[in-house]
């Protein structure tokens, strides 16, 4: 009986999320020109990523002990997880705007978790463009690599993509806490994070000096998003800074970090002081 109610509640929650999303899509469609331009800009950006990737593959024989297909695998896992992050969490780094527009206070008056309302707050169609490009690059990488796919590897890949998305979500969620505490906090550093992830996340970290690579493994866990999962899938362990077992467990990093970031977020949310007026 209790199971039945729990199931009903989750179905209800999903339907509500769906309704909120479709409402937000309709809100975006009110600005047709902007919407169309947004899609166009997205396509142009995605195309430039593709061109860059193709050039990369055709020019470089390999990088830091990785074949060009391997490098492409890292990049495409990174983009896949980034796209999943985008579809689910794109609004997290817009929290400062949500706070400043007073929308957070409206969220607080509704019987729904605030974080969920933040995440569902706007719908960004372009994240699907990111997803399409990521899938295309991923299939290119597979064609070059001729990996042997086992059920374990398929499950591991899916887990790694979700884990990578959660790592990005965790870092953005932790950074967004500043917006809960100070209404003047801006999003400058979330842009910085985007930049760092796309600069370092797409390559084998073994090519970097040890200190930098260490920083990107243990401090800002970029390595766990794509580099370590790709190492597991291709069996290229040389140059990684963690033992094989840790690389195998890399999808868990996202779960742990995300749960920690959510706790931090809730802690800060409880201390929200309002925006005056």
């Amino acid at each position: 009986m209790a199971g039945g109610t729990a199931l009903r509640r989750s179905v209800y929650r999903l339907r509500l999320s769906w309704k909120l999303t479709s409402l937000n899509v309709r809100a975006r469609l009110e600005y047709r020109v902007e919407f169309a331009l947004g899609i166009l800009a997205g396509i142009l950006w995605q195309a430039s990523v593709m061109v860059f990737a193709t050039v990369l593959i055709s020019r470089f024989p390999g990088l830091g002990g990785w074949s060009s297909g391997g490098v492409l695998l890292i990049a495409s896992i990174r983009l896949l997880s980034h796209a999943v992050y985008g579809v689910l969490f794109a609004n997290v780094n817009r929290l400062h705007a949500i706070v400043q527009e007073g929308k957070l206070e409206a969220f607080l008056l509704r019987p729904l978790p605030v974080y969920r309302q933040v995440v569902l707050h706007q719908f960004h169609i372009n994240t699907f463009g990111d997803l399409a490009v990521a899938v295309t690059l991923f299939s290119l990488a597979l064609r070059r690599l001729a990996l042997e796919w086992t059920p374990f590897k398929i499950v591991f890949l899916c887990a790694a993509v979700v884990g990578g998305a959660l790592i990005e979500a965790a870092v953005q969620t932790a950074l967004s806490c500043a917006a809960l505490r100070s209404p003047t906090a801006t999003a400058d550093w979330t842009g910085w994070l985007d930049h760092t992830l796309s600069t370092f996340g797409n390559y084998p970290l073994a090519i970097l000096p040890g200190a930098v690579s260490g920083l990107l493994t243990f401090v800002l866990p970029v390595a766990f998003i794509a580099y370590l999962p790709a190492a597991v899938l291709t069996g290229t362990y040389e140059g990684t800074l963690v033992p094989r077992e840790i690389a195998l467990a890399s999808p868990c990093a996202g779960v742990v970090l995300f749960l920690a970031a959510r706790r931090l977020w809730n802690w800060n949310m409880r201390r929200y002081e309002g925006i005056g007026g």
Binding site: L23, R26, A27, R28, E30, G102, E105, A106, L109, G277
Partner: peptide, 13 residues
Amino acid sequence: AVFGQRSQLWWDL
């Protein structure tokens, strides 16, 4: 709750 200065409605719809 109603805050006269601010709306809780979806602005664009």
